[in-house]
């Protein structure tokens, strides 16, 4: 037999994956920066434009509208989803049989694609034949998706419906890791349920709260599928979030240059958020959690 293979060569095994990743993720990322400096309608020739797109986009009130809506949905989603997911996570981590049964049902929304969720809710929320038609649920008979003052909250609700189960899973898994001895000790000390929750459960969930919140906040930059199918950004521009603004600018208004500017804004915001969140909450902790996968 030949001498044992050099371990330097083992590194070559990363190449196929690296090539796919660089070609179809990193190169397009760089491409967005370049395209943001050009004029292109998506079909014809590409011409150099310089910073013109940037000036236009930054002065466009639609951009401010998109950023504000995105910020709103980010904050509201976090405020709505975090307490519900956390409580449900604790709830489903309990050993009672009925909770296990409920947990199985809670996760059903995860089986639906975003398109399915959006289409289902379009019907459910219809003022004529949706749930508003159920005797006793008449208050649900509103033009949920047509009223510019309501629609953003509807979107926040539908997104919560879709994503709370996922975050519940994270919390459920984390609660099950909490050593039972902590609760036993608290029982002996006579600490009640609320006290135990505040002084044991919550502190023990700290890392999961950070992980889940980071995913929620960075994820809220990418709410596209559901909103696109549910409202298409409307009525008017009432739900034209940043990714939707980018899509519509590029593929409806055929202005790929301006759309690329929005894409770059999206990346920069996402990276800035991810880095500041991990830094603020302690990068070392994130790392150690990642390594414990």
């Amino acid at each position: 037999m030949a001498a044992p293979q050099s371990r330097a060569r083992s590194g070559l095994l990363t190449l196929p994956a690296l090539l796919m990743f660089v070609a179809f993720a990193v190169v397009p990322l760089a491409g967005a920066v370049i395209l943001s400096l050009t004029r292109w309608d998506g079909l014809g020739a590409i011409s150099w434009e310089g910073l013109g797109n940037w000036v236009e986009v930054l002065h466009d009130p639609l951009t401010g509208n998109a950023l504000l809506l995105t910020l709103k949905i980010m904050v509201f989603s976090w405020v709505v989803q975090t307490p519900i997911s956390l409580l449900l996570g604790v709830f489903t981590a309990g050993t009672q049989r009925y909770r296990a049964v409920l947990a199985v049902l809670y996760f059903i929304p995860l089986l639906l694609s975003s398109a399915a969720v959006a289409i289902a809710f379009k019907a459910v929320l219809d003022p004529n034949f949706g749930l508003g038609g159920v005797p006793g649920l008449g208050f649900l008979s509103q033009d949920w998706l047509g009223d510019p003052d309501l629609v953003l909250y509807v979107v926040i609700f539908v997104i919560a419906w879709q994503f709370v189960p996922f975050h519940t899973l994270l919390y459920q898994a984390a609660v099950r890791q909490i050593p039972a001895s902590l609760y036993e000790a608290a029982d002996i000390d006579g600490a009640g349920r609320v006290k135990q929750f505040r002084h044991i459960t919550l502190p023990q969930l700290r890392n999961t709260i950070i992980t889940s919140s980071t995913l929620m906040v960075t994820g809220s930059l990418t709410y596209f599928d559901v909103v696109f199918v549910l409202t298409g950004g409307g009525p008017g521009n009432a739900t034209r979030l940043l990714p939707l603004d980018m899509y519509l600018t590029g593929f409806s208004a055929n202005d790929m240059g301006k759309a690329s500017v929005l894409a770059v804004i999206l990346v920069v915001t996402g990276l800035a958020l991810a880095f500041s969140l991990t830094k603020y909450t302690g990068f070392a902790r994130m790392r150690s959690e990642q390594e414990g996968l």
Binding site: F24, G31, M246, Y247, L266, A274
Partner: peptide, 28 residues
């Protein structure tokens, strides 16, 4: 693996987690 390729590719993949798909669709 040992050597630079193995080390850099790991950091490159780590960075990849932060790339939002949506931002790349036009160049794609």
């Amino acid at each position: 693996g040992e050597g630079r390729l193995a080390r850099t590719s790991f950091s490159v993949f780590l960075l990849g987690l932060a790339i939002p798909v949506h931002a790349t669709i036009i160049p794609l």
